[in-house]
Nucleic acid binder design. Structure first.
Lengths: 141, 141
DNA sequence: GTCCCTGCAAACGGTTTGCACCCGG
DNA sequence: CCGGGTGCAAACCGTTTGCAGGGAC
């Protein structure tokens, strides 16, 4: 009955999705641990609470949530996809040493729309992925 | 003995890589067909010239070329990786209808370095992926 | 009661790897 | 001739799917 739980219930309802305990648990994990978790990490967390929860359902739930726009899926060059409860918009910084993803506060890129238009393309969305060494890793140089 | 072939030979040499016929064929295909091919497409093209060429070698070669910086690997949300002979720098536009990747002429994003620095991160590289409907697909609306 | 969702296990696609042979330097 | 590269097949990993049973509405 926390505020977070109410928000999740409402989000699922608004999206016209059934509120199953598995979907709820996935959303809750993503919102409480905004660490861009992998499907496997989410599975482990949800499975810890409900040992009957299966990988297939985690994948199905994630796909449904992504489809509904409640979750964003990030694909990196390496490893599996990462998931992100789509709260605020932001860019991503991928650390090549530790593999973690750090958030970069959102800022718009002004010339993007204009450039897409040059090719007669219709822009719907874009994102920037930065790569390098994050603050924590760089500190230990 | 074309100009292109000499360039490939030199690039491999500069990278300290042996000039095997398979690596050469991979590079040649990527430079002649700058369409952001998948590993499978590259395999089919190379295998057509040399039916003994195997998938494993294509993957090994691509990894070696990427490692040497001669080829860029792009990973999209869907399907396998695409490869790009790293000639000129550019951004990418992914068409959600036809799945093709169009090039967007390079332009720098000015506030990127500054934003990365805010988080104490050391920026090494970045790229922008645009998504939407490309000119060809949009024309048939 | 109706469908959608779940759990299970098997299949899948893309990619990597172990090993013996081969060829470029 | 030496060491890295190749071909083959099997393994691998992340993800999807077919099916039978169960829970949300």
């Amino acid at each position: 009955v926390t505020n977070l739980q109410l928000r999740i219930d409402r989000a699922l309802e608004d999206a016209g999705m059934r509120r199953t305990s598995q979907r709820f648990a996935v959303m809750q994990y993503l919102m409480e641990q905004p660490v861009h978790a992998s499907a496997e990490e989410i599975f482990e967390a949800v499975n810890r609470l409900d040992p009957r929860a299966s990988r297939a359902t985690i994948y199905n739930s994630l796909n449904a949530l992504v489809h509904a726009g409640l979750v964003r899926r990030l694909s990196l060059d390496v490893g599996g996809a990462r998931y992100d409860a789509a709260l605020d918009r932001h860019h991503h910084f991928f650390c090549e040493r530790c593999g973690n993803i750090r958030d970069i506060p959102w800022f718009p890129v002004s010339r993007i729309a204009e450039r897409a238009a040059l090719g007669n393309h219709t822009l719907r969305d874009y994102d920037i992925t930065l790569r390098g060494i994050c603050g924590s890793c760089g500190a230990s140089d």
